[in-house]
C-alpha cells in the first residue's frame, strides 16, 4: 500500500509498541545488577527522579494540550520511561564490553546522563505520537510540543541532549528510519542554534579544549 503520512506515523507507533511491549516500567534485573555493582547504589535516586520528572511532564503536558488529556500525557510518559530503562541497559552492556568495566557508579550517579537519556526517550515518543496527533488533529494544542519543548520542560541544556543522541541510536537497533531521522534533526537544530545560546555547556567545553591546546603549545619547563 502507498505510504501516507498517517500510515507512516502508525507504523512508527506500532514499531515503538513492539519495541516496548516487553520493556519494563521499572529497572530490569540486569539494570539492578549494574546498580548493585556501583560504589554508590543509584537505584533509589533514579526511581525518585523518574517520579518527580513524571509529575513535571504530566503537568506541562496537560497545560499544553488541555487538562482533559492529562491521562494521555501520563501514558506517553510511561512509554518514555520504558524506553529510557531499555536503552540504559543496552548502553551499559555495550560499555561493559567496550571498557571491561562493571562498576558504573560515576555514570549512573550523573544526573545529566539520566535526564538527557530520559529526554531523548520522551522526545522520540512525543515525535512518534506527535505526527499522528498532527495527522488527526484530535487534541487541542496550546503549545507546540515538538522539539525543543521536552528539554525546556525538563530544564535540560540542548547540548546535554546532543551528547546522548548518537549513543542512544547505537544502543537501540530497533529504531525506525523515521525515528533516527527525527533524532538527527534534533541534533542539527541543536548544533545550528540551540547549543550556542547563553549558558550553554558547549562554551565551557570549547574553553577547556583551548586551554588543553594552550598547555600543549607551551614549552615544557626545564625540570621536566
Amino acid at each position: 500500500l502507498p505510504q501516507t503520512p498517517v500510515r507512516a506515523a502508525m507504523s512508527t507507533i506500532q514499531q515503538l509498541m513492539i519495541i516496548l511491549n516487553s520493556a519494563n516500567d521499572t529497572p530490569s534485573d540486569n539494570l539492578l545488577f549494574y546498580f548493585n555493582n556501583c560504589t554508590v547504589n543509584p537505584h533509589e535516586v533514579i526511581v525518585k527522579r523518574i517520579e518527580n520528572m513524571g509529575i513535571t511532564f504530566k503537568n506541562k503536558f496537560a497545560e499544553a494540550v488541555g487538562q482533559g488529556c492529562a491521562e494521555i500525557g501520563s501514558q506517553r510518559y510511561k512509554i518514555g520511561v520504558r524506553l529510557y530503562y531499555r536503552v540504559m541497559e543496552s548502553l551499559l552492556k555495550s560499555e561493559e564490553k567496550r571498557l571491561s568495566v562493571h562498576n558504573f557508579s560515576k555514570l549512573l550517579n550523573n544526573d545529566i546522563f539520566h535526564i538527557s537519556l530520559l529526554a531523548c526517550a520522551l522526545e522520540l515518543v512525543m515525535a512518534t505520537y506527535g505526527t499522528s496527533r498532527n495527522a488527526s488533529q484530535s487534541m487541542k494544542v496550546e503549545t507546540d510540543l515538538s522539539f525543543p519543548w521536552i528539554i525546556n520542560i525538563l530544564d535540560l541544556k540542548a547540548f546535554e541532549l546532543y551528547m546522548i543522541v548518537e549513543s542512544f541510536i547505537k544502543a537501540e537497533p530497533s529504531l525506525t528510519r523515521e525515528m533516527i531521522k527525527h533524532l538527527e534533526g534534533c541534533e542539527h537544530k541543536i548544533m545550528e542554534s540551540l547549543a550556542w545560546q547563553q549558558n550553554s555547556p558547549l562554551f565551557e567545553l570549547i574553553k577547556q579544549s583551548k586551554d588543553r591546546e594552550g598547555q600543549a603549545d607551551e614549552p615544557e619547563p626545564a625540570n621536566y
Partner: peptide
C-alpha cells in the same frame, strides 16, 4: 541506521562523553 552519520571516534563512548571514565 545506515543513513545516520556516526561521529564518535574509536574509544569514545557514553562514559567519556559524560566524564565518567
Amino acid at each position: 541506521t545506515q543513513d545516520y552519520h556516526f561521529g564518535l571516534e574509536e574509544g569514545e563512548g557514553i562514559s567519556e562523553l559524560f566524564d565518567c571514565d
